[in-house]
Design a protein around this nucleic acid. Structure first.
Lengths: 108, 108
DNA sequence: AAACTCTATCGTAATATTGCGATATACAAA
DNA sequence: TTTGTATATCGCAATATTACGATAGAGTTT
């Protein structure tokens, strides 16, 4: 992404941007969609669900895990991923703060 | 961002990802924050508000404009930007579809 | 017209992302 | 212990992002 001047912005602005970045790829949206659609936790099925190689899916999962949007637990041989609702709630709080300020406004 | 296999995902997934990407930089969150804080439309003041060069700000504004999150109108010499509430509402609709599925769930 | 202001765009350097094959690691099963 | 299965990580090529100085284009002012 090139050098980015994170230190010049607020913690909140950086946190929002970080969450947005984690969700800025359709494959990662597809992963979230899938995890939301299955009630029980799933692991390697995600690889079968997506049109991407195992290494690529693993990388996307890592990015989602790094920002806390999903979490994984070891299930014997496999790893079971699921939504981490805490981070979603935090994200939702940030966004509702923005959305509630949106209003129809005449532009100049 | 490297090659990304957009065609393998749904229109909805790509649209959400595109909006997220536009908001995935703290400077662009700061621009949105600023536009929301001023009632009347602002133009070059955004450059003064941010710790970035004019060329860089112009580039960020272009990205936000490209996805329709803001709009600009010519005001004599200057350009006046403001929030485009329509796109925000669309984004909010997409997100509420996701958020309402979030629930506390035991992970495996 | 000349000088000034505002904004977009070009060009470029530094760095990040995406995707995947190959490989490593870890556990399970035979 | 050997084989198989599941997942992470390494290394690389292709491409995208970020930042900014320089410059161009368009309108204003004098």
């Amino acid at each position: 992404m090139g050098i980015s001047k994170t230190e010049d912005f607020t913690k909140r602005q950086n946190e929002i941007a970080t969450l947005m970045k984690a969700l800025s790829h359709p494959a990662r949206i597809a992963i979230i969609d899938y995890l939301l659609s299955v009630d029980t936790c799933i692991c390697g099925d995600i690889v079968n669900e997506l049109p991407l190689a195992q290494a690529t899916v693993s990388q996307h999962l890592k990015e989602l895990k790094n920002v806390g949007l999903i979490k994984g637990s070891i299930e014997g041989n496999a790893i079971c991923y699921c939504i981490n609702e805490k981070t979603f709630v935090k994200f939702q709080d940030y966004l509702s703060g923005i959305f509630k300020k949106i209003k129809v406004q005449a532009c100049c």
